[in-house]
């Protein structure tokens, strides 16, 4: 999962730029072919997520078909928009860190990666570098987001360092779990 460490680096850069800290790395034949981090605040475009930034980089020098043999490592579960975009490009597989309870499109809110529908479905495996990803997000959200339309009154927010367990059953089948995480971790595979 060294590629995920590179994705975390991207997320840290996003945080330094006052963007929601999400980072992504696309890997083809063991080689990084695209990187991305969230860019919505700078671009004033709510769709400039890390995944799109990476895809744009790839398509500058590769045909779209390369995505079919490409793996994505991203610190947070792709949102519904990105999950659909990745499926339209027929991405091979996605590994992610934290679940995206609000907008997640790979199991949290919807399973746009594998629901019956057009385009080849793809597997998305959660939990890699999850603590790092969550702590980066918490670091960001203790600051206010001055651009939100009607600022909600936020009480003094403190970093909470207790991290809830991940419900793997929302994202993978038991067989997939054993194959990806190992038989010895099976006690983690339970509905929460």
């Amino acid at each position: 999962m060294d590629f995920m460490a590179l994705a975390v680096e991207q997320a840290k850069q996003a945080l330094a730029d006052n963007e929601v800290p999400v980072g992504a790395v696309f890997v083809h034949n063991n080689k990084v072919i695209g990187r991305g981090r969230n860019d919505t605040n700078r671009s004033l475009n709510g769709t400039r997520h890390a995944e799109f930034m990476g895809i744009d980089e790839i398509l500058q020098s590769h045909p779209p078909e390369i995505l079919k043999e490409t793996t994505l490592y991203v610190t947070v579960e792709p949102c519904i928009m990105c999950a659909s975009a990745l499926r339209q490009l027929e991405i091979k597989v996605v590994y992610f860190g934290a679940a995206n309870d609000r907008f997640g499109g790979c199991g949290s809110v919807l399973s746009a990666n594998k629901d019956p529908g057009p385009f080849r479905p793809y597997p998305a495996y959660p939990g890699f570098y999850r603590e790092e990803a969550i702590m980066l997000l918490r670091n960001f959200y203790v600051q206010e987001n001055p651009k939100a339309p009607v600022p909600k009154v936020k009480k003094q927010r403190v970093l909470k360092d207790n991290i809830a367990e991940l419900d793997y059953t929302k994202y993978v089948t038991k067989d997939e779990f054993v194959r990806i995480y190992g038989q010895d971790k099976l006690d983690l595979f339970k509905s929460i």
Binding site: T47, I80, M81, C82, Q88, F103
Partner: peptide, 13 residues
């Protein structure tokens, strides 16, 4: 709109 575009419209408020 497709799933990607519909969610983009949600993100764009």
């Amino acid at each position: 709109p497709c799933t990607m575009c519909s969610m983009a419209l949600v993100h764009s408020r």
